[in-house]
Amino acid sequence: MIPSDNLSTPEEALNHPLKDWLNLNRFIFCPGCLIGTVITSITTCLKERGYTSKDYAIVSGIGCTGRASGCFKAPAFHTTHGRAIPFATGLKLANPELEVIVLSGDGDLFAIGGNHFIHAARRNIEITVICVNNNVYGMTGGQVAPTTHVGDITSTTPYGNMEPPFNLISLAAASGATYVARWPGYDTLRLQKSILKSLDNEGFNFIEVLAPCFIQYGTKNRLGDAVEMLEWMKKQIKIETDCPPHMATLDFKKGVIICGEFVEDKREGFTKRMEQIREKAKSKKIKK
């Protein structure tokens, strides 16, 4: 990761339309990285819904996107590697009124934290998980991730990756997520629509954001700089409506990346069911 220059002058920062939601002092991302657009997309949605710091919390794990929680003027938690989702579960259970957003990377959420992801989706805890997928471990130096494509060069697959990647959309849908979408990180309008839907949906929401890493991934696979990589990705993007989750192809070799909304389901959330359990316990209907 290359620390960026301070992009805003103090005057610009003071006049920033999202200044009440953003903390620009902790913005450490490489120039050209789409994590920044994801952060502004989330804050734009929070502003649109009129949420202030008492209404929501941001939780992240470890890695490049792990550092994103620091960019919010909110109760923001930078937790351990992979454990953002159970931490967020605790926040939500203790305060169901809270809008809890998990913002983390593909390695954090699906390798070390994979177990937590599938179980959170299964129990339909009402949180929103936004995964910034850059197909690689960026911060640790570009190692192979569970989202790296077959044949790709990373620092731990010098002869090419031999493992097939997870399809996160298919995984989230199979695990029981009630809202599942995938967007390229530059498509902020569609991304924001998805984030707003997630904020309104009382269930487990999953949004995969494609944000290629030109430093760790692009260089090793000769895909060019930040702009060239985005152009390369843009050519492959195909937006589809009503595509079943298992057909949500993401294949750089075939040159097909299907984006869109794949699951929109209504299922009773965990905290609602917990409330029913409390009523049942208090009415002593169960045998002790």
Binding site: A57, V59, P75, F77, T79, T80, G82, R83, I85, P86, F87, A88, T89, G90, L91, K92, L93, A94, N95, L98, N115, H116, H119
Partner: peptide
């Protein structure tokens, strides 16, 4: 791992 993480989250929500 999730158990403690969940407790920590709840603790930071005041519980």
């Amino acid at each position: 791992l999730a158990s403690v993480a969940c407790c920590l989250g709840a603790s930071y929500a005041g519980t």
